[in-house]
């Protein structure tokens, strides 16, 4: 697996406040990297930088080894980095198809279609159905208003939409909070399927069980720095909580490394999958 997203020495200062201090991490294609940390650890700042919402003070973003700079969210999206925020950004009264294709509507062929912007609703509906089915999301009716879906279905729609329009990196901000247990499992399954499509997933969460369930590795941020990068072997609730709270530091535990090394990344077949 190749390194899809690499962040090098990322720093963000707001006046005298250092939100991020030289954070480095990398996500492989087809890997879910957890990004955890207490409030104020810098998770949201890093997410916003990667999504092109804010500019870093210093540091580098590499997509497939190529340096990338995101002047705005559109630039990040154009580079193949899609973001699903906590509020999901769905239009509640619009149906699933309209939300799925928002901003990417399919226009009927022919001169008249192009002149008038006539929507090819048949193609859009079929594509939405097939894409949602491929990712095995449980959305029964693509013509239902998105506000009539359950919380899990809405989350699934937002993730499936982002995954369908990105080929590289998917940033997920707390996708499983505010969901019931069964819906959490469905969303985690969906994240695994997106990962299996070869997309690099950065999974931000406060829900330790979900991090343990879906992530191949996890980066713990603390006070704007990487406190630890936990590989498959070290990914335990104990380690996560320890590094998040600062009870553990990299020096305490020789098993975890402050910088990601090639040996901390699991090979594809040892990764816990949906059928594991």
């Amino acid at each position: 697996m190749s390194v899809r997203l690499a962040v090098r020495d990322m720093s963000k200062h707001y006046g005298g406040i250092e939100a991020l201090r030289g954070v480095s991490l990398q996500v492989d294609a087809g890997e879910v990297l957890g990004l955890v940390g207490d409030n104020g650890a810098g998770k949201s700042t890093l997410l916003k930088i990667l999504a092109g919402v804010i500019a870093p003070t210093a540091g580098e973003i590499l997509i497939d080894g190529e340096p990338a700079q995101f002047a705005n969210p559109a630039a990040a999206q154009a580079a193949g980095v899609a973001t699903v925020y906590q509020d999901l950004a769905l239009a509640g009264q619009r149906d699933v198809v309209a939300n799925f294709f928002m901003g990417r509507e399919v226009i009927s062929r022919g001169w008249l279609g192009r002149r008038t912007g006539w929507l090819d609703t048949k193609v859009m509906s079929e594509h939405t159905v097939s894409e949602l089915a491929r990712l095995r999301t449980r959305i029964p009716d693509v013509h239902a208003a998105s506000m009539d879906l359950s919380g899990g279905q809405r989350q699934a729609l937002a993730i499936a939409r982002a995954a369908a329009w990105t080929s590289r990196v998917l940033l997920l901000d707390e996708p499983t909070s505010a969901l019931g247990v069964e819906q959490q499992q469905q969303v985690l399954d969906l994240i695994r399927r997106v990962r299996d499509d070869g997309i690099a997933v950065l999974f931000i969460s406060h829900q330790m069980p979900d991090v343990l369930a879906v992530c191949d590795r996890a980066v713990v941020l603390r006070l704007g720095c990487v406190a630890s990068t936990l590989g498959a072997g070290q990914l335990t609730a104990d380690n996560l909580v320890g590094y998040i709270t600062g009870a553990k530091t990299a020096a305490d535990d020789t098993g975890a490394e402050a910088e990601p090394g090639p040996d901390t990344r699991p090979s594809p077949d040892t990764r816990p999958g949906p059928d594991a």
Partner: peptide
């Protein structure tokens, strides 16, 4: 009801945020 112009109109009224994030 049938064109992109109408779809954008309804979506903006529904959720400006969603429309902006979609790059419209």
């Amino acid at each position: 009801s049938k064109t992109r112009f109408g779809a954008y109109t309804l979506s903006i009224g529904d959720s400006r945020e969603a429309v902006v994030r979609a790059g419209i």
